Computed example of a mutant assay.
Amino acid sequence: MDDHFDHTHNHHNHDHNHDLDYHDHHSHGHGHHHHHAGDNIKVAFWINTAFALLELVGGFYTNSVAILSDALHDLGDSLSLGTAWFFEQKSKQKSDKVYTYGYQRFSLIGAFINSIVLIVGSVFILKESFERLFHPEQPDTTGMLVFAIVGIAVNGAAMLRLKKGETINEKVISLHFLEDVLGWVAVLIGSVVMKFVDAPAIDPLLSMIIAVIILVNVYRNMRGAFQIILQGVPHAVSEAKVKKAFLNFEEIEGTHDLHIWTMDGRYNILTTHAVLKTPLEAQPLEMLKSKLKAELKKINIHHATIEFETKGLACEHQSLDPE
């Protein structure tokens, strides 16, 4: 599923942008929201898991591969919710001697597990649905109709509960439930049509559409996870804006050896060498560094390590990059 369950945490006592740091343990109000978010995710997990298991039984009972494929979809959501819930707790761990940047990236393990399960399940569903297209079997349309109505009600209730949440995590998970609601609306329409028209092929076609949607989401999820692991520049950060931020300070000639990466898709890190036009004393240099870091936070850089060099004494193997 979408890798929409990453957990940003402040392990370096920096003040994050409010929208990006929703685990501020220095604020009682934020601590309350953090606890509330965990409760909402926990409730959503149990609702989703119970309903997914019910769907599996219902899918076999109604002989509907569309319901079975939606059961797979919901089980995938449950895996994501479960790992989100787990890493909501795990992210409270501060950095230590083993993981000096903290535990945010552990959430990627959950993303990979979820993706593998969903890929295997989706391929199985596509195979079954493809065979059904050539040998259609009429499902129990009344049973499908009942499950579709229950599916819309259950997923709709979970979506509304999470939509009222104040964290990014809750809002992202609410989008998963919106997707589930739309899937059940499709099953509802299909079951109504099959009640009046002899068209059993609608069931496997619905199933194939759901499976393809799952695989597209998995692809996006995996692509994002690989970019994080391979330390690509985060989507939320513009390298050009970072370079411009440095050049906005008249004391700086340019930068080189610039590296930008992200821990978990939200907590972004930068290291660079900044070349000074003229040497500065210790106190003005510290003031300049503080101003630079404050400016970088405005463009989604939460942790910056800056090494200053004087013009003419820059690293020999690096060319100055003023743009």
Rank of each mutant, 00 (worst) to 15 (best):
N114D: 00
H18D: 12
D70V: 03
S78Y: 06
H235R: 15
T62I: 13
I47N: 11
Y101W: 10
G183T: 03
L258Q: 13
A225G: 12
G254H: 14
K42V: 05
D74L: 12
F87L: 05
D2E: 05
F130Q: 13
S207A: 09
S129F: 06
C315D: 08
V65T: 14
S238E: 10
Y101S: 07
I41R: 06
W46I: 02
D180I: 04
K243L: 12
V275W: 00
W46E: 02
D39C: 07
N300E: 06
P204S: 09
I125Y: 00
W46V: 04
D264Q: 11
V242I: 06
E179S: 05
S319V: 15
D96G: 00
G232C: 12
A153D: 02
V216W: 08
E316K: 15
G110W: 01
I269W: 12
A52M: 06
E250C: 08
S95L: 01
N248G: 02
T255W: 12
F134I: 13
N217Q: 11
A236S: 15
L215R: 00
H14G: 00
C315V: 04
R223S: 09
K164R: 12
L285V: 05
F51C: 00
L126D: 04
E323N: 09
V237F: 12
G183K: 08
H18L: 14
A66V: 10
V218K: 00
I210L: 00
V154K: 03
R220F: 07
H16K: 12
Q104P: 06
E316M: 14
F60Y: 10
H34V: 15
I214G: 00
T255N: 10
L79T: 05
F308S: 13
I189C: 10
D19E: 04
G165T: 01
V98C: 04
V193E: 09
L53W: 09
M159H: 05
K293P: 03
V192R: 01
V123K: 07
N155K: 15
F51W: 02
I269E: 04
L280S: 09
P200K: 04
D321H: 14
L188V: 07
F177W: 12
P234L: 12
P284T: 07
